[in-house]
Design a protein around this nucleic acid. Structure first.
Length: 733
RNA sequence: GGCCGCUUAGCUCAGCUGGUAGAGCAUUCGGUUUACAUCCGACAGGUCAUAGGUUCGAGUCCUAUAGCGGCCACCA
């Protein structure tokens, strides 16, 4: 044995041994324990956050040693928007964009791209020692997933949970897609606040260019200044002729902002959109998907939004309708988190899931703790989110994903808006009834990029085309719609009898509401059972300054560099030691180094023990047993071990992994090494002491194994143990 | 504005169902360098944010206040 534990000599070798011996497989006839791995993006590579999967690995190893049929099922997510964006950046380098391809080609290309880049992350997971059953890996675009998603959609449609409606989305006219709440970035900015004359009123707005889309004027119901106007129609002088607007009263209006009067533009503001729903207001689309004003804006049609804003403001000033401009107004705007440009709220027809009935059950199981959260406070988070959870728009205007299985008959729907590449590869946009005069249907089908079907379109649900005269829906499902069914697509049919609900799932708090809530919802809807019993909130990995690691901050640490330097065990222990669930962990070189020292200590204890035994003559050391004549110190250590076993088992059962790790660290280092070994070392006759010491040390290796699998396995075999430590039994006393 | 969390040794943080405080790192001193990329021992360092309350007893429960952080909403 070398003087120091050199992780590079062991990790790869040991991992192979585990894998080829089938140690990661389930075992027939034993009580099942099931953990689902949250699927990382298929084209991603490992970042510090993924290293927190260590928590899952520890539990799986522990339960396996307890004698359960532990199964950790891995997978990968196609990660719709995220992946398509990465691919498009890649395209941009070649001077191309997605507009150069028809839908089908683009999809195929992204598929190839993902395939080339995937697999990397599993290799990296293996370097961290993760003991998942890799043969069971599921990709969210695998046929069985698509099949399940289609079935769910069809069932929900039949039972009235699916509807179409226009929906206001935060649309990036540059990236050509709508963004989810998660993808939106809020930015503080100073913009001019225009006070413009509006009929009898003066109102403040930062967006004068949207006035062509106004369909009401609103005031607060309790505002005395405007009380008499409520319900009346007023005539407003515009830049495009006069028009009449109704004055409505709505609580959403802040009487203290500006003059207390606001213009309502349901087509281009989320707040106004909601107000429009409450008051049944007309939606006028005055900005198109290219970020240009539509013909409704009259002389301003075709102008880009920003230019139009300046021109409108200027023109209003010219004709004396501009009261004043506050140039010092700070407000928060939403921007695209990818390209940084301002987002445009636009309405598009969207597919929705009605959640009010579905979420009731979810609230109940969370309240009853059929699903438990660790730490507990996230139960409250979840409940408060569920309360405000609104209907779920499930369609995304991107290619990379599972297509919504809907088809439109062209004879029945003459007004489908179609964007396609004609046979000369030129983009053509228009409505089917016009397009079909110049183009054949097959030409449209071949070059199809996007289809926008008006809300009242007639459609059929089917995975394949129902006939010749059909065009497909081009929207894909929200990624959460498929990953929300993760528990249902990872298990095999018969496993629902034995492994469902699964036992445990680990996650980060930021996707608790997007992912965890939806999995529970789908699971209750389709199986009438919760998907798992315990939800563990991983700590977020932060840098030395305590800031969350993110690419944009440039403070990411590649965990593999730390593995190279200090070993997988050291990194794993750093993430667990001193890190309760739901907290944050500061990953610094010093900490990992400190933990490397611990793994080295464990190694040297084993090495020293072996030396002492060989010195005494191996055959002369008695077997450890309860009847062995031992000294007081030996006895004390044996009972101390029993206590430690109890504490570690208990803390693991309660998901207090950090306490378990700290207990082991202290016991092994400061009780066994510092005190007990030192004492045995001094003895004249070491034989009995060594028997006890060996026993205690080996039992401790078992306890430590889930946390530091490599060094424990290495030293275990160096001490002549024949069977693998990973397959040994968890000590009970 | 709403909700949640945090505030404990110089730093990073543990402290479960209440019984008058712990670890790691750093610092200082000593030892070892024939288990240990070192390691061991020791000293020092905290009125547990503040103010009330419940209790025989509170870092631990309750209320209020302050500072910090997070999430959500609003921002026309």
């Amino acid at each position: 044995m070398d003087k120091a534990y050199n992780h590079k000599d062991y990790e790869e070798k040991i991992y192979k041994q585990w894998e080829t011996s089938g140690a990661f497989k389930e075992v027939a006839g034993k009580k099942p324990y099931t953990v689902l791995m949250p699927p990382p993006n298929a084209n991603a590579s490992l970042h510090a956050g993924h290293a927190m999967y260590t928590v899952d690995d520890i539990l799986v190893r522990y339960k396996r040693m307890l004698g359960m049929s532990a199964l950790w099922i891995p997978g990968m997510d196609h990660a719709g928007f995220e992946t398509q964006y990465v691919y498009e950046k890649h395209l941009a380098k070649e001077g191309k964009s997605r507009m150069d391809f028809d839908r089908k080609t683009l999809y195929t290309n992204i598929f190839k791209f993902v395939q080339d880049n995937s697999g990397q992350i599993y290799k990296q997971f293996k370097r961290l020692g993760f003991c998942a059953d890799w043969d069971r890996s599921v990709f969210t675009l695998d046929p069985q997933v698509t099949k399940q998603v289609y079935e769910t959609f069809t069932k929900m449609h039949t039972e009235g949970f699916v509807y179409r409606d226009s929906y206001i989305v935060n649309y990036c006219t540059h990236c050509g897609t709508s963004l989810a709440e998660l993808e939106v970035k809020h930015v503080e900015r100073v913009d001019p606040l225009y006070y413009i004359k509006y009929g009898p009123f003066i109102l403040a707005t930062v967006r004068p260019e949207t006035k062509f889309g106004d369909t009401a004027i609103a005031v607060h119901p309790a505002d005395k200044r405007y009380k008499d106007w409520i319900g009346k129609e007023v005539e407003v002088e515009g830049l495009n002729g006069k028009f009449k607007l109704k004055v409505i009263a709505d609580n959403a209006v802040d009487p203290d902002f500006g003059t207390g009067v606001v213009k309502v533009t349901p087509g281009h503001d989320p707040n106004d959109f909601e107000m429009g729903k409450r008051h049944n207001l007309e939606i006028k689309q005055i900005i198109d998907f290219n970020g240009k004003l539509t013909p409704i804006a009259g002389p301003y049609a075709g102008m880009k939004v920003k230019a139009a804003r300046e021109k409108v403001a200027h023109d209003l000033q010219q004709i004396g309708l501009m009261e004043k401009i506050d140039t010092n107004y700070t407000h928060s705007i939403i921007t695209c988190y990818k390209c940084g440009r301002d987002l445009e709220p636009l309405t598009v027809p969207n597919w929705f899931i009605k959640v009010s009935d579905l979420k009731k059950k979810v609230i109940q199981v969370v309240e009853d703790e059929q699903v438990k959260f660790h730490p507990k406070r996230f139960k409250k988070h979840m409940l408060s989110w569920l309360e405000i959870m609104h209907d779920w728009p499930i369609s995304r205007q991107i290619v990379w994903g599972i297509r919504i299985p809907v088809w439109y008959n062209i004879d029945q729907n003459p007004n489908l808006v179609v964007i396609f590449l004609d046979k000369n590869k030129k983009i053509v946009t228009g409505e089917t009834k016009d397009l079909l005069e110049k183009h054949s249907l097959s030409e449209i089908k071949a070059g199809l990029q996007k289809l926008i079907a008006p809300k009242e379109s007639v459609y059929e649900i089917s995975s394949d085309s129902p006939g010749e005269k059909y065009l497909p829906e081009t929207d894909t499902f929200d990624t959460w719609f498929s990953s929300g069914q993760w528990p249902l697509v990872t298990l095999k049919d018969k496993e629902f009898e034995t492994r469902f609900p699964t036992d445990f799932i680990g996650t980060l708090s930021d996707i608790l509401k997007f992912w965890i809530s939806r999995m529970i919802m789908f699971s209750l809807y389709l199986k009438n059972e919760v998907p798992y019993k315990d939800v563990y909130l991983w700590a977020t990995v932060a840098d030395k300054e305590g800031k969350k690691m993110s690419k944009s901050k440039g403070n990411v640490i590649n965990p593999l560099e730390l593995v190279d330097k200090y070993g997988a065990d050291a990194l794993r222990f750093s993430l667990i030691y001193g890190t309760p669930a739901g907290s944050k962990v500061i990953l610094s070189d010093e900490k990992v180094k400190g933990m490397r020292n611990f793994s080295n200590k464990v190694w040297n204890m084993g090495r020293f023990l072996k030396m002492l035994i060989e010195e005494q003559g191996e055959t002369l050391i008695p077997e450890f047993s309860a009847s062995l004549e031992t000294s007081e110190t030996d006895k004390k250590m044996v009972s101390r071990l029993a206590e430690i076993i109890q504490i570690v088992t208990q803390t693991l059962e309660n998901f207090k992994l950090s306490l378990a790790a700290e207990t082991l660290y202290d016991f092994i280092w400061h009780e066994i090494a510092d005190v007990y070994i030192e004492e045995v070392k001094q003895r004249q006759d070491k034989k009995t002491g060594l028997a006890v010491l060996k026993h205690i040390y080996l039992q401790s290796l078992k306890l430590l194994h889930p946390f530091m699998p490599f060094v424990t396995e290495a030293v275990w075999s160096e001490l002549g143990q024949k069977d693998q430590l990973i397959a040994s039994h968890w000590p009970t006393k």
